[in-house]
């Protein structure tokens, strides 16, 4: 069997804070094959963004990162020297950020910023780099690409800037691209366009992609694999079809109820919500973090929750079918 491009085991991120330690990400595992798209979903504060920054080696100095394994195509990115990580970043793994308005340097032209990664990583001349930049700008659907190279970020709209960010990430034809909510800051009308573009280009270049998003509609369309994060933990992960057809964690089912599903959701019916808030992750977190909001919670949920696996479909819940034990009332 082919080796995964990216393999992560027991990734843990701790942030020392005033009152103790914030366990922002707690032991997550996943594998990503070449050309595969993994969608990480979960609400704000679930550790999605931190996970992606941890993969890129871009975490702040105060965050403690540990893992049993973090392997990118044979390179151990957990112990890699800064120089080795720099060689990977922008060349073999690239990232697209949430905020196109502030993610470009205001002092330099689009051309300068597009060609930077290529000039840093590959031995190409300035002219060749500019040609490549024009080619990619055209690919991401920017018209008059040649004249854009001399423009500054403030002269472009948010949608255009995000297209530039995508082109920038693709300059060196990375094997892995991480997109952290790339459309959150954009107008609804162009969100779908940008995602489609990203997905098509990913397919075309056979890139593996980690797409972080709130939008389950997007996930349903593009994901090969889905990972559902809740409070720093992967509560459910597996092939997209399995997760969508047999969602096994109550949180996943809750998320799915929050979006309308063509053909299933009746016109005029109320969409679901998940009541409550994400618990504090400061100090020791015991048992299932979702139990305070789970309609099926019971006494056992306070203990450690074992992983349950059906093939490649994994979830952490002791009653995946959602049946409430009659003799026990909702606790916690």
């Amino acid at each position: 069997m082919e080796n995964p491009l990216l393999s992560v085991r027991n990734l843990t991120l701790d942030i020392p804070v005033g009152g103790g330690t914030l366990h922002a990400v707690r032991g997550i595992d996943f594998d990503l094959m070449r050309g595969e798209t993994l969608c990480i979903v979960g609400e704000s504060g679930s550790g999605k963004s931190l996970t992606s920054l941890a993969l890129m080696g871009l975490l702040g100095k105060t965050i403690r990162r540990s893992a049993d394994r973090m392997d990118f195509d044979g390179t151990d990115i957990l112990t890699a020297k800064p120089r080795a990580m720099r060689a990977l970043r922008g060349d073999r793994m690239a990232m697209i950020f949430q905020e196109p308005m502030t993610s470009l340097n205001p002092a330099y032209t689009i051309g300068d910023q597009l060609t930077e990664a290529l000039l840093l990583h590959k031995s190409v001349g300035r002219e060749a780099a500019r040609e490549r930049a024009i080619e990619l700008l055209e690919k991401v659907g920017i018209t008059a690409a040649r004249s854009r190279l001399g423009q500054y970020p403030h002269q472009l709209s948010g949608g255009l800037r995000q297209r530039v960010m995508i082109a920038m990430a693709l300059m060196c034809e990375p094997e892995l691209i991480i997109a952290d909510e790339p459309t959150t800051a954009l107008d609804v009308t162009i969100q779908a366009q940008i995602l489609r573009l990203l997905y098509d280009l990913g397919r075309e270049m056979n890139m593996a992609m980690i797409l972080i998003t709130h939008d389950l509609g997007v996930v349903a369309r593009v994901a090969d694999k889905v990972a559902v994060m809740y409070a720093g933990e992967l509560v459910e992960t597996g092939p997209a079809t399995d997760v969508f057809n047999t969602p096994s964690h109550p949180y996943t089912r809750g998320l799915l109820r929050c979006i309308p599903q063509p053909g299933k959701t009746e016109r005029g019916s109320t969409l679901g919500t998940i009541p409550g808030i994400v618990p504090s992750l400061i100090g020791d977190v015991q048992g299932c973090a979702f139990r305070t909001r789970c309609p099926f919670a019971q006494a056992e949920c306070k203990a450690d929750i074992p992983r349950r696996e059906e093939g490649t479909h994994m979830f952490r819940c002791i009653h995946p079918d959602g049946k409430r034990h009659a003799e026990e009332e909702v606790t916690a």
């Binding site: 720099r86 060349d91 690239a94 990232m95 502030t102 993610s103 340097n105 205001p106 840093l120």
Partner: peptide, 15 residues
Amino acid sequence: SSDYIRTARAKGAPE
């Protein structure tokens, strides 16, 4: 602490 500095680092620019 701005986003574009993170972008520069994400490109693999030396410190």
